[in-house]
Design a protein around this nucleic acid. Structure first.
Lengths: 357, 357
DNA sequence: ACCTTCCAGGTAAGCGCTTTCCAGTACGGT
DNA sequence: ACCGTACTGGAAAGCGCTTACCTGGAAGGT
């Protein structure tokens, strides 16, 4: 591997000159030398050692992103937004998958810290686990004190700037839509119990139930893995325990797709006999049958905003992190309808989209 | 930011000792010192500077991955496989999205080279662009000469080990299945013209046509973006130009899903009036309606094998890169059937999966 | 003709770590 | 009591780059 010194020797100049030319520093360099050096760089196919560069200069360039799993459409979309902004700023993005393992998440924060990344974006639900949360928070603060920038997505409990999706409100919108259609008992497929996203969204569902004079009992609630197969299994369980259900709310679209698959297997018509509503509005939701009613989260935009926060100068008041909210929006498509024998006939507001100020 | 030296000072030892303890080097260190150092590390919340570490020691740790777009399910699956193996080896993965821009791809190779990654995995179609290909190849070779390992996915034309999906054969399988069902003129939605994946798969389709005594004319062929909306637009064009079409082969599943959407919009029954077959078997394919017939590529496995190659010692004979093939496999689901007025009645082999040795 | 100013280019001191080599001590053998 | 050995810990030389500071000489002023 050719080094700076090799290039310098070959061009018959000092390493300082080569460095200046390569980084086209403001310091002027004669045209003849510049040419000689550039020629030497080309001949030797010199590629500067980024580790050495980072060590020598103060400023950081790459940014780290920790998500649960990039191959999950939810994070894929967010990541797309993150990437876009990072690329605009000429930043390399390092993506880390925690696979929802808090320990791995902690390890990755250390890793990104160690790699002197300019910022860490932490996306994905927090955990109901006080010790872990505290440890994570401590690491994040330490990283910030060392000059790193932190932006979190959907985690109120941490240091750093945040963009938080309206999970509670979204949960409300989903359940409210179902009740308004005339459903009286709805089954809920929740995500893993220890995730804050689950409880946030669930809280909204509960509030809607109360508002409509209902109560969400344990029998109508199942916790499942936040993916398609989790939703499929959960729907099966719900149906077995409660054959008269007329609507299912899944707390994300992947699970809703699983529920749809279960219903299809059993020959239960959607939305004729059973309504299904999801959450997130991932891209594929329009292409399943029937197209999935859901609560849209502006996933790409969330990514864009989080990365923008992370790359912008920290707020003057460092102890007052910036918090931005991402609006949840009801999107009614084909998977929801009034219940089969709806006595109360509320006019279904099909296709209408309500936005919350 | 605390440094090694800070820790050493605080513990009253030399930096060498701290370094040994932190990396638990084979060199024995007294228990009392070890405790003092560990205490100092904790108090100072010391996080070693990874750049300095990499500079000081020879060996490389992270591996780089260049894909077109992680949020595309095709790459998401491959990436999942790559990640799994990398994680098993304790390697950090740096994911880079080229968004199918050759220049960006070149830039990323330099970047990963500069960052001294242990290996580069290049996934995704090559380009029909000789100068770009040559430049890329040169960079890759240079990187290899510097001790880096290279593994490519689906690019025969490059240095380094490779795992190549049977694109040509897969194209054959898809078209062959359609012809066997009795279709005589099939429309083909291809990906972008300048991608080798497109031409490879298309070659298979053409071969199947020939074998069945047909010819693929330009009228039945459309080039489109390799995504859902590309497929949707392409299907619309095909249908307009050729209303009597009874089957469409899309060269990836995303486009097939788009075609399905187009057909649904127009009220054309699938598979009653029109068969659709995709390519890749991405996870969502079972959940669209009707479930998509397709050609399966073992995406996760491809990722696993590519990363395994990249992490394994180079072959003894360095100039003879290892090449592994990934078998394409026909998967018939609900989106294919005989044409409406099939005169030649070949028994459809619904649900059957044929594997190629 | 001399001194100042300015500029291109070089010298060398790090950046934070690893690791080789060396020093000092304690021990055992004779 | 002396020497050899073993073993723990430290000193210091880099790893490949950046950059503050310095130098020599040309240009300009009086």
């Amino acid at each position: 591997m050719a080094t700076l010194a090799d290039v310098a020797r070959r061009a018959g100049v000092s390493t300082a000159t080569v460095s200046r030319i390569i980084n086209n520093s403001p310091k002027p360099v004669g045209e003849d030398l510049r040419e000689r050096v550039l020629a030497a760089v080309a001949e030797l196919q010199f590629v500067p050692n980024a580790n050495a560069q980072h060590l020598a200069r103060a400023h950081r360039s790459a940014v780290g992103v920790i998500v649960h799993d990039v191959s999950d459409p939810y994070f894929a979309e967010i990541t797309r937004g993150l990437q876009r902004v990072a690329t605009e700023h000429g930043r390399l993005v390092i993506i880390c998958n925690s696979y929802r393992d808090p320990e791995r998440e902690l390890a990755y924060v250390d890793l990104l810290h160690a790699h002197q990344t300019a910022a860490i974006v932490l996306a994905g639900s927090g955990y109901h686990d006080a010790p872990v949360t505290a440890r994570l928070d401590r690491k994040l603060r330490l990283y910030e004190r060392g000059g790193g920038r932190v932006a979190v997505i959907g985690r109120h409990q941490h240091a750093g700037d945040a963009v938080v999706p309206e999970n509670e409100h979204g949960g409300y919108l989903a359940a409210d839509a179902l009740y308004r259609l005339g459903h009286t008992t709805i089954g809920v497929i929740a995500g893993p119990r220890h995730l804050t996203t689950t409880t946030d969204r669930l809280a909204g569902v509960r509030r809607a139930a109360r508002d409509h004079g209902h109560r969400l009992t344990a029998r109508h609630l199942t916790y499942a893995d936040f993916d398609r197969n989790g939703g499929l299994a959960a729907a099966a369980g719900l149906l077995d325990r409660h054959p008269r259900l007329t609507a299912i709310a899944a707390l994300n679209d992947s699970m809703a797709v699983g529920a749809l698959a279960c219903l299809r297997e059993r020959g239960i018509d959607v939305p004729g006999r059973m309504s299904v509503i999801g959450f997130d509005d991932m891209p594929i939701s329009v292409d399943v049958t029937p197209p999935l009613s859901t609560v849209r989260l502006p996933l790409v935009e969330i990514g864009v905003r989080a990365m923008s926060l992370a790359l912008r100068e920290p707020a003057g008041d460092a102890d007052q992190p910036r918090v931005e909210h991402a609006a949840a929006q009801l999107v009614l498509r084909g998977s929801t309808a009034p219940p089969p024998a709806a006595t109360r006939s509320h006019r279904p507001s099909t296709g209408r989209i309500r936005r919350r100020g």
